[in-house]
């Protein structure tokens, strides 16, 4: 068995070497070389460096000393780590399902619009182009408890709006609602997936007397499950790394920092504070590896669970 595997591997290596004799292969590597350089120099390199630094007391300026596992031990003693991690997980748990459901609803609406779909697709995509910093500032304006548009609209219906920017219970929901408007990318992915669902499956379901809900449940969802899974992974990772909107609204300026709210202290914001404001680069590196581990665990769980639900065209299952 081992001999067989070794033989297969040897064949694969031989084929790979032989491929270099082809002009197309060399050209392909030339074309992807900028990305490879970018990955090695700007991603893999800093990752390795941050791993090494996570075992030191590096402050960015002075001499660096090895501190063993101290930084990792401190992760468990620092209450701000648990606070920021919990804030981030709550934000992710609120944002990801909401954004997916809303994007799917919009994509299904777009599917029925017909000729005007192109226009609405552009309209839905435009907010994606808005800088996140502007979205952070917008949050403070829209959600101002006294004069904000959101509370004015709620007040019109007789609902007293909460203090979105100062009440710890409402800071995260407010930020989730603010980030929800940039759904364009997810909508475009769902729209493409919905267009690929074979119409004959709907016709067969209709002949079998399936209701609209049952057709959606048993035809649409399984057929677009690949796209749903992809956006679940991508949105989860993006939410766990969320930074700009919360940082701009609550930590970006010295004035905002003065009024910063613990409920908006997301993990990457805390990591940034440790690195660039408190100058604990070594500890910040350990924080970044903890986040990497959290994202890895969540993604692996999602991938494992998805095997039961995700349908890929051509898949034997």
């Amino acid at each position: 068995m081992t001999t067989l595997l070794t033989g297969e591997r040897r064949d694969r290596v031989r084929r790979w070497r032989a491929s270099w004799r082809r002009r197309d292969t060399r050209a392909a590597y030339w074309f992807i070389s900028p990305w490879m350089f970018g990955f090695l120099a700007l991603t893999a390199g800093p990752m390795i460096a941050s791993f090494v630094l996570s075992f030191t007391n590096y402050d960015g300026i002075g001499p660096t000393h090895a501190v063993g596992m101290d930084n990792y031990r401190q992760l468990f003693e620092d209450p701000q780590v648990a606070t920021s991690l919990l804030n981030t997980l709550v934000f992710t748990a609120l944002r990801v399902p909401l954004s997916m459901a809303l994007a799917l609803a919009l994509a299904m609406l777009l599917l029925r619009v017909g000729k005007a779909a192109g226009f609405f697709r552009t309209v839905f995509y435009l907010p994606v182009m808005t800088p996140s910093v502007a979205v952070g500032i917008l949050f403070l304006l829209l959600f101002n408890g006294n004069m904000g548009l959101v509370n004015n609209v709620l007040g019109f219906f007789g609902i007293p709006g909460p203090s979105w920017t100062t009440d710890g219970s409402w800071v995260k929901p407010g930020l989730v609602l603010t980030t929800l408007w940039a759904l364009g990318s997810t909508v475009v992915i769902y729209l493409a997936a919905l267009r690929n669902v074979p119409q004959d499956l709907y016709e067969a379901a209709e002949l079998d007397g399936a209701s609209r809900w049952k057709a959606f449940r048993h035809v649409t969802l399984p057929q677009i499950s690949g796209a749903l899974f992809f956006t679940l992974i991508v949105n989860t990772i993006a939410s766990l790394q969320t930074f700009t909107e919360a940082y701009t609204a609550f930590f970006g300026t010295s004035n905002a920092q003065t009024y910063s709210h613990e409920a908006a202290l997301f993990y990457v914001v805390y990591l940034f504070q440790q690195a660039f404001q408190f100058m604990h680069m070594g500890y910040a590196s350990a924080l970044s590896w903890l986040l990497f581990a959290v994202i890895l665990v969540i993604t692996v769980i999602q991938a494992k669970v998805s095997k039961r639900f995700v349908y890929y065209e051509g898949d034997a299952r």
Binding site: N144, G145, T165, D167, Y259
Partner: peptide, 11 residues
């Protein structure tokens, strides 16, 4: 309370 005062200040 703080919510109302901060909201007014921000406006």
């Amino acid at each position: 309370g703080w919510g109302g005062m901060k909201a007014l200040r921000d406006s």
